[in-house]
Write a protein that binds this DNA or RNA. Sequence first.
DNA 1: ATGGTTACTTACTCTTGGGTCAGTACCTTA
DNA 2: TAAGGTACTGACCCAAGAGTAAGTAACCAT
Lengths: 130, 130
Amino acid sequence: MGMETAPHAAPLPQAFADGVFPAGCPSRTLLDHITSKWGVLILIALSEGDQRWSDLRRRAEGISEKMLAQTLKTLERDGLVSRRAQPVIPPRVDYSLTERGYELSALLVPLVAWAFDNAEDIINGVSQSK
Amino acid sequence: MGMETAPHAAPLPQAFADGVFPAGCPSRTLLDHITSKWGVLILIALSEGDQRWSDLRRRAEGISEKMLAQTLKTLERDGLVSRRAQPVIPPRVDYSLTERGYELSALLVPLVAWAFDNAEDIINGVSQSK
DNA sequence: ATGGTTACTTACTCTTGGGTCAGTACCTTA
DNA sequence: TAAGGTACTGACCCAAGAGTAAGTAACCAT
């Protein structure tokens, strides 16, 4: 079955029309942030609305406090997540997605959904479609 | 501006309707594979059609032979990439996406495109939307 | 005074992703 | 006969991501 060219050709940015992903490209860095082990989960969790620190810990099951702090800082620096601290005791901090963060999460959610739907089959090798 | 609930609510799988991403879940593993540093680039490259080993090396600029081999093996085991070796000298091996691989790449391409479009602004901190 | 709550930070360790480089197989061409 | 081309594998090592655990701040309730 001839598959020399892509059957459902997807619209890649013109920038790498030559098909090469340059090594120094800033998109590499950004991609590393948003596809990081915990970054994905945090972004997905926040796509459902504002969350407190403790909420995020619970949702991204297994994350350590160190990694949560580190991941949130990176995403905040990237302008994808915003932090609102309330001056109360005990402390209360709410995290949410920025406009840009929502834009991104709209693309991330279907990916995670797909992974969830296909994971069992794939990882436990149920069926390999030709 | 009330943002207590998600403004553009996205359709997350029912499975984690409680908003918790379980630690042992196989989707975590699959997600790690497809969002790995080199995994993304290989899948994107293959979304443009069949590629030889040497093509992939060129496209995923900076990848080492070791990592290319390792990444391809993982993706092949996951049933996302298929390998066709031709018994010629010098050797010729063609890699392509499986049905499932194409399904995935259709979700991955917009993500990478978005990263590409926003990387400069974000990484070099041009403008932080509110 | 003591313990509890929440959101962190810091120090230490360890696992693993990843780089480098040399080597292999096999035939062709100069 | 030596060099070249292609697709690898394997050994060795390093750095960065990630886990563990303890500590901090600040106030309130007991």
